[in-house]
Structure formats: C-alpha cells, structure tokens
C-alpha cells in the first residue's frame, strides 16, 4: 500500500523532464526537423549537475537559496496530487490551497534570486512573472472551486478521483470550461506559448528564462528540474479532469494517465507550433479570459 502511494511520486520524479522532451520533439517534427533526442532534458540535467558554479559579485545568499527552496516546495507539492489510479501521498481538507501557495513560495524565491543579480533583464522577467501569476491565481482557484462544487470535495486527491465519465455526462459544459481555464493557467504558469516563448533568444522578450539567466551548474539544474515538476503537476490535474478513467485496475489507470500526459504534451507542442506569442500587453487579457471561463464554470 505504501508503495502504491509513493508510486505517483516516483513516476513524477522520473518522467517529468520527459514531458518537455516530448513537447520539443513535437515542435521539431511539425517544423520538419529531426529535433533533439527525447531524452535531451535528462542529458542537460546530468551535465549541469556535473558543473561548477559561477556567481555574480552582486549576489547574496538569497541567490543561492532560491533554487533550493523552489525545488523543495515543488517536491512537497507533488505529494498532494494523485496520479492514475493511485491517490496522493497526503490528503486533507483544503490541501489544494497549500498546493497553490507552495508554488507561490517557489516563485517568491526565484523572483528574489533574479532581483539579487541587479540585472535589469532579470528584473524585467521577475516583474512579468509576478504580474502574470497574480492574474493566473484567481483563475486557478475559481477552477478548483468549480470542481469542488461539482464533486462536493475540498481536497484535491478525492476531488480528482470523484471526477468520472458520469460527471462528464451530466455536466459536460462546466467541465469543459474548467478544463479550458486550467489549460490557460497551465500555459501561463509553465512559460509556454502564447504567454512566454521558452526557446526565444532575445532577453527582452522572455519571462521565465530571463529570470534565471545568471544561474548555472547545479543551481540551474534544480531550477530546470523544478520547472519540469511544476509542469507535470499542472498536467496531472488537467489529465485527471479530461480523462477520468477509473477502471478499478490501478495499473491500467496509470497507463491511461501516462497516455493522457503524452497527449497533453503533444497538444502543447501543437499549440506552440501553430500560434505566435501574444504581445505582453495582451497576456493579462488572456488570463482575464481564463478567469471568466472559470467563473462561468462555477456559475453553471
């Protein structure tokens, strides 16, 4: 039983970077390129872990603490979400509030680490990050409230388990709207197109990447791994709502869940290939739309 509840955590820790690999591969296939190997994110992490470190003169202990606190909070947040047929390691009423705020804690420290360098590029990225996440937060909470109202649970693991095909059968519009809002939040929080372009090469246009410009070596590995975990975390919630497969056999459910994650990664790649990034001034509007979608879902 203990193994059962640890399994989702192990799967997440092992597969999270793969999701980024799949997205990148999808994009290169659509663009007609070979693309980097699927396992490239793992190679990157491995390489970074074996490097030394270079710190800026201006930085203080905040800069070194940032990546650790952010990774630690994401690791703990993972213990709160279920995967496939397996419930979360820990569940209690109101745990999704903790989940959201653990991610906020990680963001707080990454932003401070960025400001610690004194670079105006990083200040710019930090400023954008806090702006967009402040607007994404209400959308996330309203989506969760919509799901909670539908299922009557206020803990994320039972809540996601309670979503089933029969809920879809009698509340499809509401779930659809929630899903749409969650996907916008997913794209915004994980620095994907149309909010942020993870592959852009101009500092002035970046959000997440420019914040971590000065990190290197093991610190940067922690940040990259944390980003992968964060994406995995949001993706599990979306997949659990979109593909509520509860066959009774946990292994089948887990396989379906993994397939769902794969599809979501491919879908993200398709979205990234088919869209341009929004102008930064228009991003708040997109997040506002997510808030409207989520509140419409609650109202239904």
């Amino acid at each position: 039983m203990l193994f059962g509840s640890v399994l989702p955590l192990i799967v997440a820790l092992a597969c999270a970077p793969l999701m980024q690999g799949v997205i990148t591969r999808t994009k290169s296939v659509i663009a007609g390129r070979m693309g980097q190997p699927l396992m490239q994110p793992y190679h990157d992490l491995w390489k970074l872990l074996h490097k030394g470190a270079v710190y800026s003169h201006t930085t203080s202990w905040i800069f070194r603490t940032g990546p650790m606190v952010s990774l630690a909070s994401l690791l703990l947040a993972l213990a709160l979400v279920p995967f496939g047929g397996f419930p979360a390691l820990s569940a209690f009423s109101g745990d999704f509030i903790l989940l959201a705020y653990l991610m906020a804690l990680g963001r707080f420290f990454i932003v401070l680490a960025a400001l610690d360098t004194g670079s105006s590029f990083e200040g710019m990225g930090a400023s954008r990050e806090v702006t967009f996440s402040a607007l994404a937060e209400p959308a996330l909470f309203l989506s969760l409230a919509a799901l909670a109202r539908q299922t009557g649970r206020i803990s994320i693991s039972p809540l996601l388990t309670a979503v089933s095909w029969s809920v879809w059968a009698h509340a499809a519009p509401m779930l659809g709207l929630t899903l749409a809002a969650l996907i916008i939040v997913f794209l915004a929080e994980n620095a994907r197109i149309p909010v942020d372009d993870p592959t852009t090469h101009l500092e002035l246009t970046m959000i997440h990447e420019v914040m971590v410009l000065d990190h290197g070596g093991p610190d940067f590995a922690m940040i990259q791994y944390g980003a992968a975990l964060k994406m995995w975390l949001f993706a599990t919630i979306i997949v659990a709502v979109a593909v509520p497969w509860h066959s009774g056999n946990r292994w089948i459910d887990t396989a379906v869940g993994l397939a769902g994650m794969l599809i979501l990664a491919i879908a993200t790649g398709v979205i990234e290939s088919s869209m341009a990034r929004l102008r930064l001034l228009r991003v708040p509007q997109l997040l506002l739309v997510a808030i409207v979608l989520a509140s419409l879902a609650v109202a239904l």
Partner: peptide, 27 residues
Amino acid sequence: TLSGLALIGGLALACFTKAFGIVFLGQ
C-alpha cells in the same frame, strides 16, 4: 472571497518581492 484572496495573494507577492528585492538586493 476565494478569488479575491487569490488575487490579493498574488499581488501581495508582487509587492513584497518588489519591496525586498529593490531595497535589500542588487546594488
């Protein structure tokens, strides 16, 4: 209340990363 708290929380985070970051960090 809950969406307002979420917005307030996000904005407070922005405000205090600003306050701490600009006052104490950098040069």
